[in-house]
Design a protein around this nucleic acid. Structure first.
Lengths: 249, 249
DNA sequence: ATTTTATTATGTAATCTTTACGCAAAGTAA
DNA sequence: TTACTTTGCGTAAAGATTACATAATAAAAT
């Protein structure tokens, strides 16, 4: 027994009988169908959007649904999420992260189905959609309605996750073109967080973090003075990112 | 169609045929057994501990396992996690939160089992264990070994979650007695984060947050000058907690 | 009773960060 | 040319963090 266990010999009892046939054990467990749902965020015209399709269930006729699929029998969860993305959008180089599992017994009209929600971020401009089955389209996150299943709740949770996460991690750059102006970056933060930020302080903050590479290039075809273009230095970020957040709540 | 959908009528196709029999649909899905595993953290003698039992599988004989159980057929995920906690420890007023779902197809020797990991925090002193089946005991998190399944990985993820979370949320107070000294609070942070903190600045930080209630009571039976006791003002925290974190990474 | 020791409690100065602004320069449109 | 918008740079005040100093209190040792 490891030295870390603080045993109480008077009370503690070892397992009654060890199970040998683990296969029979697992076969005796009730099983539940598992799906993966992808909340795919994009950013266009200064609006945060999410990719949705029409539900193909009669009882949700006309309603919108997340991109999802059944988990393959030998598939990893992450693997399945990347597969859903690839099958439904044709894209495979996209940010993706598990956010939360939803298991309300009544969430699917056909019986219990548990879904693992993944959040994904992509640049709408860079990744042109090539598949349009089931009216696959971008919808503004702020004005969603007519969602099938519990997908409004799933999106709400992923949106909250994104709002928090984008403040502490360089997620924004997955939603922007590779070359972006500081104004575009600020518009993205303002749209996602729903706040107004001071232009000059925002700029100062990002320059002080020192992860932006000045490309010495300028915006084109803008109806005003063109801004400088930057790209994010992911290599430098990986080496220098904050380890210590600090106690504060 | 909602005004938020940016349709491309040339390419977009509605669902081919709507599914009416959702029950048959769900019944056709492959199903996977689901378990809930609870990573229950406690704090004792300035060491972060986790509650474990002996595995009752022959192939993991002598190895340690998280407290878990199969998800009931009509049970919510959170509900099942609270049930596991109550059944295995006799406690029901404990902090609990979903952290991550683990679905590696090879993680269980008896076949595919997906587990939803919950993180739980409790005060070892306040909640005396009353059930000791399967050698239920506290183990120091830092020196774990001989874990069954992928439970080392599950604990690692929950520990990382805790390290981050405790800096931004008042979780610490679930691990401490209701009345605590600032020294105890600091010891807890130092043990969980694995850092040394300056006593004077730590104290200043917590006083400036202004969520500690000075009980005008003092420690007893300590072999030195007794420190003042405090409790955490959860009501005030709920009203005044930070909404805006700030961009920083 | 006095001294020693450990620990609590409070303070302060220097540095860094955040916030709230001001203003000149560059490009577009009247 | 002039007005307008937006970029880009700057600065001063307030606030937060860091590093370190010292007095006060209680227990234990002399």
């Amino acid at each position: 027994m490891p030295n870390t266990a603080t045993l109480n010999p008077a009370k503690s009892k070892p397992p009654e009988k060890l199970i040998i046939d683990t296969g029979a054990l697992v076969a005796s467990y009730p099983a539940v169908p598992i799906t993966i749902d992808c909340v795919i965020f994009g950013f266009e015209e200064n609006v945060l959007k999410v990719l949705l399709i029409r539900s193909d269930l009669k009882c949700y006729e006309g309603k919108w649904s997340l991109l999802g699929d059944i988990l393959g029998e030998t598939e990893q969860l992450d693997e399945a999420a990347y597969r859903v993305l690839l099958q439904r959008t044709g894209m495979n180089d996209v940010f993706l992260q598990q956010v939360k599992t939803f298991g309300n017994p009544g969430r699917h009209p056909g019986g219990r189905v548990i879904t693992v929600a993944y959040c994904s971020l992509l640049n709408i401009r860079h990744h042109e959609l090539k598949i349009y089955d089931n009216e696959l389209h971008w919808h503004a996150v702020k004005t969603l309605e007519n969602m099938a299943f519990d997908h409004q709740q799933v999106i709400d949770e992923c949106y909250k996750w994104l709002q928090k996460r984008i403040q502490e991690h360089p997620l924004a750059f997955n939603l922007l073109p590779e070359k972006f102006s500081l104004r575009e970056l600020q518009n993205l933060y303002e749209a996602i967080l729903g706040v107004e930020l001071d232009r000059r302080n925002f700029r100062k903050k990002f320059f002080s973090m020192d992860f932006l590479i000045d490309l010495e290039e300028y915006e084109e075809n803008v109806p005003h003075r063109p801004g400088k273009l930057y790209k994010f230095n992911f290599e430098k970020y990986e080496l220098n990112k904050k380890k210590w957040i600090g106690i504060d709540f």
